Amino acid sequence: MSEAHRNALVLFSGGQDSTTCLAYALTRYERVETIGFDYGQRHRVELTQRLAVLAALRQRFAAWSGRLGEDHVLDLPVLGQISDTAMTRDIAIETQAGGVPNTFVPGRNLLFLTLAAALAWRRGLSVIVTGVCETDFSGYPDCRDDTMKALQVALTLGMDRRYVIDTPLMWLDKAATWQLAHDLGQQADPAGGGADLVRLITEHTHTCYLGDRTHRHPWGWGCGHCPACELRARGWAKYSQPRSSS
């Protein structure tokens, strides 16, 4: 690891992917801070759950607790005001012309990462970790690897500071993301840390687009039928199926 890139800021929503990214960062970097955004999202229960996840991580993984620094939440109502999407309005989730679902919030990841870089500049952090993924995703253009590489260049040039956008989930499907969480937890604590981190993610994280915390499934809480729940459930089914001993 470069001497200049020992500290990281994790885009942390409180969902499965961002929690796995946080565990990854706590394994890899010496000091880790987190950032979340309140943009009027329909599933704003995630803002409550992210605090539950942080508390549970600190309690269960002592080795990580010492690396886990300040948490930041930015109010971003303007994004909700200009977005007419199923993530910011009480409308049915559907696929739009061109194949992109109406859960896509235009500019969201671009804005999140730009604001994260501005905060990182002030906090002396040079790595920004985000859970965007081009393997299991909904066709969102701001989750693509090319987008992340272009934005890394733009932020580095625009702020005259070398930034690294670290995307550990970019080429993983949801089953592999569950497995990564297990492996990271096990690395942190060989005495059951892997299973405990998977249980923590299952119980405390929130992914459901509708903000449902009333229905409990083997993979966690959610409505069970929105695209986010279906993706998480498929990944869990693949991850938890019995492995061949051969």
Rank of each mutant, 00 (worst) to 15 (best):
M1A: 12
S2D: 15
E3G: 11
E3S: 14
R6V: 13
L9A: 10
V10H: 00
S13E: 01
D17N: 09
L26K: 10
R31Y: 10
R31Q: 14
V32A: 06
V32M: 05
E33P: 07
I35K: 02
I35A: 03
D38R: 09
R42N: 00
L47S: 04
Q49V: 09
R50M: 10
A52C: 10
A55K: 06
A56P: 10
Q59D: 15
R60F: 08
F61G: 01
A62T: 15
W64D: 04
R67A: 08
R67P: 00
E70R: 10
V73Y: 05
D75L: 13
D75T: 12
D84M: 11
T95V: 14
T95M: 10
T95F: 11
Q96A: 08
Q96R: 13
L110I: 09
F112Q: 00
F112K: 00
L113F: 03
A117T: 13
A117S: 13
L119A: 08
A120K: 10
A120D: 00
R122A: 09
S126Y: 04
I128A: 07
G131W: 04
E134Y: 03
E134D: 11
T135W: 07
T135N: 11
D136A: 06
F137N: 15
D142A: 02
D142K: 07
C143L: 07
R144Q: 09
D146T: 12
T147V: 15
A150S: 13
L157I: 11
Y163R: 02
T167E: 04
T167Q: 07
L169G: 03
H182E: 12
H182A: 05
D183S: 11
G185R: 07
Q186T: 14
Q187I: 07
P190V: 03
P190A: 10
G192R: 01
G194H: 05
R199T: 12
R199S: 15
R199K: 14
T202W: 09
H206I: 02
H206N: 08
L210S: 12
L210I: 14
D212T: 06
D212P: 01
T214S: 14
H217T: 02
P218R: 05
W219E: 08
A228P: 03
L231A: 15
R232Y: 05
W236H: 06
W236G: 00
A237F: 02
Y239V: 00
Q241D: 11
Q241M: 14
Q241L: 12
